[in-house]
C-alpha cells in the first residue's frame, strides 16, 4: 500500500517536504500506477511515459495538491484522467490524420495480449473503472471518489465492462 494520507501537516497544509514525499510515492507506486495506465491505454510503454509525466508535473506544480496533501490519491486520479485524455487525443489524431500511426508503441514484453485487446475495445470510462477496480482492489466508493462519479455509475460501468469482457473472451460466468 502506498503512503496515502500521510503527507499533510496538522493544519492541513501540504508539508514542506512534498518533493520528498512525491519521490517516495514515485518509488513505491510506480509499477502499480503503470499497470493502472496500461489497462486503460493498452500500452505499458506509453503508460510509463505518462506516469513519469504526471509526477513531473506534480513536482513542478506542488500547489496542485489539495490541502489534505494526499499524494497517492492525487496521483492515482491524475494517472486515470491522463490515460483517458491520452486515449481521446489518440482517437482524434487518428480521425484527423487519417492514418493509423497513433500510439503504436511496441510493448516491452508480451503481457496478456488477448485480455488487453478486449479491454482496449471497451469505452474509455469502462476501462477506467475496470483498471481502478483491479488496481489495489479498490472499492466501488473509492473508484467513484477518484473519478468524481456516483457509485451507481461505477457499478453500472463495471458490470457492463465485465460482461463485455466475458462475452469477448467467451468466458462462462460462475
Amino acid at each position: 500500500m502506498n503512503i496515502l494520507g500521510e503527507v499533510s501537516d496538522s493544519d492541513g497544509s501540504v508539508a514542506a517536504s512534498t518533493p520528498t514525499i512525491v519521490q517516495r510515492v514515485y518509488e513505491n507506486d510506480y509499477g502499480r500506477l503503470v499497470a493502472l495506465s496500461t489497462l486503460i491505454i493498452g500500452s505499458s510503454a506509453v503508460a510509463e511515459e505518462l506516469v513519469q509525466d504526471v509526477f513531473a508535473r506534480l513536482l513542478a506544480k506542488p500547489h496542485l495538491l489539495r490541502a489534505d496533501g494526499n499524494v497517492g490519491a492525487y496521483v492515482t486520479k491524475a494517472v486515470a484522467n491522463q490515460s483517458r485524455s491520452r486515449l481521446r487525443r489518440a482517437a482524434l489524431e487518428r480521425r484527423h490524420r487519417r492514418t493509423a500511426e497513433v500510439i503504436a508503441t511496441p510493448e516491452l514484453a508480451p503481457i496478456d495480449d488477448e485480455l488487453l485487446a478486449a479491454v482496449r475495445a471497451l469505452p474509455v470510462r469502462q476501462r477506467q473503472v475496470v483498471a481502478l477496480r483491479f488496481y489495489d482492489d479498490r472499492s466501488v466508493d473509492q473508484i467513484a471518489t477518484t473519478l468524481g462519479v456516483s457509485s451507481g455509475t461505477v457499478k453500472t460501468h463495471l458490470h457492463r465492462a465485465l460482461a463485455t469482457l466475458r462475452r469477448t473472451l467467451q468466458e462462462v460466468p460462475e
Partner: peptide
C-alpha cells in the same frame, strides 16, 4: 486482470528520480 496488473507492476522499473526532476524543471 489482476495478473496483468501484477505483471506490469513487477516488471516496471522506475526510472531514476533525476529524470523526473529534469522533466519537472523543464516544465
Amino acid at each position: 486482470l489482476r495478473d496483468v496488473v501484477d505483471s506490469v507492476d513487477q516488471r516496471s522499473v522506475a526510472r531514476p528520480w533525476s529524470e523526473v526532476e529534469a522533466r519537472s524543471n523543464a516544465i
